[in-house]
Simulated scan of single mutants.
Amino acid sequence: MSNIQQNQYPKVSVATQQGAVLIVVLLFLVLIILAGVIAVRQSTTDLRLATSDQINALLLQSADNANQSIEQSMNGSSDAEIYNDMISRSGPFGYLMLDTNSINHEYVFCFRPRGRFFDINKASIMTPTGTVVSGSGSGYCDTTKPGDYVSARNASMTQVNVSLSPPNKNTELFSSYTIGQDSGEISSQAFMFDIYSTAVLPAYADTKVDDEDCFKKTSKGYEVTNSEDTIGGCMAKAGVPSTVLYEQANVENQSLRTKCVDFAKGTGKLCILPSS
């Protein structure tokens, strides 16, 4: 007598098999879609980072170009026309040095490197209240004027704000005077200037906030309580990519300097007096 036990398994229909395959395929499709979305997001992020780096490099180059041009004009030949314009009574440095009422003023001009980077007839002198001194021209950059852009591509523009550095209690007494010269002469004094070069890309957004032109804002952040009242803060609020490059420059008449050497070493003014 046979003791074989037969087990019967439930039969799987063809329709059920097709349903399971469909679920597996759908799962694979979902995974493929997720991988695609992640790849697209990653590539978009990389593109944004690359674009941001390009913008930052362009703005930094535009602002630094303005500072270098100013340095070269002041350190170059005193016979050059641009040198005379910069230190004349109507120029940025000459005005702030020679006019006793200009201590809190800002000298503003749009940097135009395609020609003469500084035009003495296109400059504004701004008071702490934001008004323009009567007689000064229009020095603020204007996005509607192609000549105000750094290059013919009309991509970036740079505005320069020059002002006297505020007094500092830690500054050494009489450090602003040339040794061996008459302190009553203006040419014997050294002056410290704050130079703010603001480079922007106006193509990204309007440079105005509530009908107020950001270019006409002050560059001196220590004089305002709200950062949006500065040219850089206003540009950030307007959504305009911008870079503000700050430089402090010491302007003095080097030709009147008396050479100073150590005692018993060469000729010239003695820095160290003998002990006896």
Rank of each mutant, 00 (worst) to 15 (best):
Q8R: 13
Y9I: 09
V12C: 05
S13D: 09
T16A: 15
G19D: 05
G19F: 13
V21L: 15
L22D: 07
L22K: 10
I23R: 04
V25K: 00
V25D: 01
I32V: 12
S43P: 02
T44R: 11
L47W: 08
L47C: 00
R48E: 10
L49D: 13
T51Q: 11
S52T: 12
Q54V: 13
I55G: 00
A57C: 04
L60G: 14
A63G: 13
N65C: 04
N67H: 15
Q68Y: 10
Q68C: 04
I70K: 03
I70S: 10
Q72P: 06
S73F: 02
S73N: 04
M74C: 05
N75E: 06
S77A: 07
S78V: 14
S78K: 15
S78P: 08
A80R: 12
Y83K: 06
N84Y: 00
S88P: 02
S88E: 05
S90E: 02
G91H: 01
G91R: 03
M97I: 13
L98D: 13
D99S: 07
S102T: 06
N104Q: 15
V108W: 05
F109E: 05
R112E: 11
R116F: 10
R116G: 14
K122A: 14
A123Q: 09
S124G: 01
I125W: 00
P128I: 07
G130S: 08
T131R: 13
V133Q: 13
S134L: 03
G135W: 08
G135I: 06
S136A: 11
G137P: 01
G139H: 03
Y140A: 06
D142R: 04
D142W: 00
T144R: 04
T144P: 00
K145Q: 09
K145W: 00
P146R: 13
P146N: 13
S151W: 01
A152Q: 09
N154F: 04
A155M: 14
S156C: 03
Q159I: 14
V160N: 10
V160I: 13
V160K: 06
V162Y: 07
S163K: 03
L164P: 03
N168R: 08
T171C: 02
T171K: 12
T171Y: 08
T171P: 00
E172C: 01
T178F: 00
I179M: 01
D182E: 11
D182K: 14
I186L: 12
Q189G: 03
F191V: 12
D194Y: 07
V200E: 05
P202W: 07
P202H: 08
K208N: 14
E212Y: 08
D213G: 00
T218I: 08
G221L: 04
Y222E: 11
Y222S: 13
T225L: 12
S227V: 05
G233F: 06
M235W: 07
A236V: 15
K237L: 05
A238F: 00
V240S: 01
S242V: 07
E247D: 06
N250S: 12
E252K: 15
L256Q: 06
L256R: 13
R257F: 02
V261W: 05
K265V: 12
K265G: 04
T267M: 07
K269M: 01
L270K: 07
C271R: 11
L273H: 15
